[in-house]
């Protein structure tokens, strides 16, 4: 039996009645926010492919998804938040930040309340990996808090959850 066979057996067992995209890599992922902790706020953009959405939904946080359509009005934030953003764009690096995110950050209040950026990407894109997160961080003078790939792994979720808790304490 290969190393993978054992992991697949575990996953099949975990799935029980499988529901697409809902399987849990780790049992702790869907825990509710512990009582008494202040709620981190995560604003995010995710295209219809939904990778960033799948990552963010596992976070212990209140979540605000930016509208898919650019012509819709962006939300105006009233408290500090972190922004999770995937990278799009072309080889020369233009168009990395989704236009919906640009529209959201063009609201001055939203820039003021931004505490940091979570970058979603794929290392296959070489030096453009998580470029949108880097650009926003530089432009808004906030740190890139973490970078993850595609839907993120269980380790990514745990690290970001712990990091956000500390940030909001």
């Amino acid at each position: 039996m290969s190393a993978l066979s054992a992991l697949l057996e575990e996953a099949r067992h975990r799935d029980g009645a499988p529901e697409h995209g809902q399987d849990q890599g780790h049992d702790d992922r869907r825990e509710e926010l512990p009582r008494g902790a202040s709620d981190p706020v995560v604003v995010y953009f995710s295209s219809v492919s939904g990778n960033t959405h799948r990552f963010v939904e596992k976070l212990w946080a209140r979540k605000v998804r930016l509208p898919l359509r650019t012509r819709e009005e962006p939300p105006v934030m009233e408290e500090p938040y972190v922004l999770a953003v995937p990278t799009y764009g072309r080889p020369e690096g233009s168009g990395a930040v989704p236009p919906q995110v640009i529209k959201f950050l063009n609201v001055e209040t939203n820039r003021k309340l931004l505490r940091g950026v979570l970058g979603a990407g794929n290392t296959n894109f070489g030096d453009k990996f998580c470029l949108a997160a880097d650009k926003i961080a530089a432009k808004c003078e906030v740190p890139v808090l973490y970078k993850f790939e595609l839907m993120g792994t269980g380790t990514d979720v745990t690290t970001v959850n712990e990091g956000l808790m500390n940030l909001w304490q």
């Binding site: 500090p80 820039r111 003021k112 309340l113 931004l114 505490r115 940091g116 970058g119 290392t123 296959n124 894109f125 070489g126 030096d127 453009k128 990996f129 998580c130 470029l131 880097d134 808004c140 003078e141 906030v142 740190p143 890139v144 808090l145 973490y146 970078k147 690290t159 970001v160 712990e162 990091g163 500390n166 940030l167």
Partner: peptide, 21 residues
């Protein structure tokens, strides 16, 4: 990816030195 190797885990660093945008 030259960007993948740099320290992009701010959370596990010193932690509290973030700045508001």
């Amino acid at each position: 990816s030259p960007n993948a190797d740099e320290n992009h885990d701010f959370f596990s660093g010193s932690g509290s030195s973030y700045v508001i945008g």
